[in-house]
Simulated scan of single mutants.
Amino acid sequence: MEKPFSPGNKRMLGIQILDILSRYSSKKSPLTHKQIIDKLNSQHLVTCTRSTLAAHITNFQTDEFQNIFGCIVKCDKLGKGYYLEQEFSDGELKLLIDSVMSIRSLPENDAKVLIGKLLRHGSQSFQLRTKSYTSADMRGLPNSPNQEVLASIAVITDAINNNHKVSFIYNDIALDSNKELVLHPRSKERYLVNPYRIMLYSGRLYLLCNTDPHENLSTYRIDKMSLVREEASGIKTWRDIDKAYNPPKTMLESLHMFSSDIIDIEFWIEEDCLKDVVDWFGWGYFKIDDKKDTRLLIRLKCNETAMSFWALSFGEYIEITKPKELRFRIRELAQEIYKKHKI
């Protein structure tokens, strides 16, 4: 009896034609009937007549086929050949692959598997072009050692959809007896939280949540979680989270994902640094209230702890004016830095 996926099995002819078009055709290099038939014979050991091939290609050019499979076979000029217009363009696939590579929360093996799945959506020429630099770029990337990240994301997603709490062990980075970096539990007790959203910020995946009986929102890095578990108890609604949570606004105000209060901040900064303010806080998330000489007066909302570190990174180019508590805190930090670095 002939096996369903054995070479030469014509019952798979439609899939085999799509495989040839997917791997070898492109808008710049379409395949003629003869080229497709030759590759079917060499790659899949099947013979195919022109009329049979034409019938399959006609089916692959319908809107119904595109709606179901997300791709379509096209012919830009009669007699010049056919190509498969993939669901993702080369540029879109490149963007998705680079995005996976930039997520530092993922362990290297998981990142490689995801990239491999994305590569299969591209043509053979795209795969050959992309594999070489992807393999080189993957080496030495600061990926997470936590092998539970994807499983944790799945559990958290289910818990959010089911309106259930999640519990987990939260870890810190520590040195083991061999002076190797390892994840070490921060506490023997499991954290129990009300999960609301998974957020990506600066290459790290965070869980936005609340801990009973507190009323504030907290963030935890998912790559520092282990033994994540969905609990049977229901979550507490946090002040209408769908209205309160705005992804761009939340991430800009919670710079570096610190969990302290969001406050109104006012500071003077050199005009040459305006591009840096835009890069960090985005268009429309701050106001320029005044200008004196080469300095601009900026007003915005931001996490207090994060703002203190951000301001220190700009040193003499910035002056916090409000609130006074933050101004004093930065002065104290600057004095501590001076004491440690004075000669």
Rank of each mutant, 00 (worst) to 15 (best):
H33W: 05
H121K: 09
P213D: 15
N210G: 06
D110P: 04
I198D: 00
D240C: 05
R295V: 10
S123I: 03
A136P: 03
T211V: 15
M251N: 12
L84E: 08
R221A: 07
R229S: 05
Q147V: 12
E2L: 15
S22F: 02
H33F: 14
H121N: 15
S102K: 06
E316L: 08
D289W: 07
N59T: 15
K287W: 05
P145F: 00
L93Y: 00
I169F: 13
I318H: 02
F126A: 04
E230L: 08
I115T: 02
L95Y: 09
I103P: 04
Y170E: 06
N109V: 13
Y133F: 11
L128H: 12
L181T: 08
D110A: 10
P195E: 02
G79E: 02
Y83K: 01
I198M: 07
T157W: 05
H44Q: 08
L96I: 01
R190G: 00
N216D: 14
S233I: 12
K275I: 13
S177R: 10
H164N: 14
G14A: 13
E2M: 14
C48M: 03
H341I: 11
Y170H: 11
N67P: 00
Q66I: 02
Y196V: 06
E64M: 08
L141I: 14
F286I: 10
E325T: 11
S42K: 14
R299T: 14
M307E: 07
L208T: 03
L192G: 00
T58L: 13
N216H: 15
Q43R: 12
S233R: 14
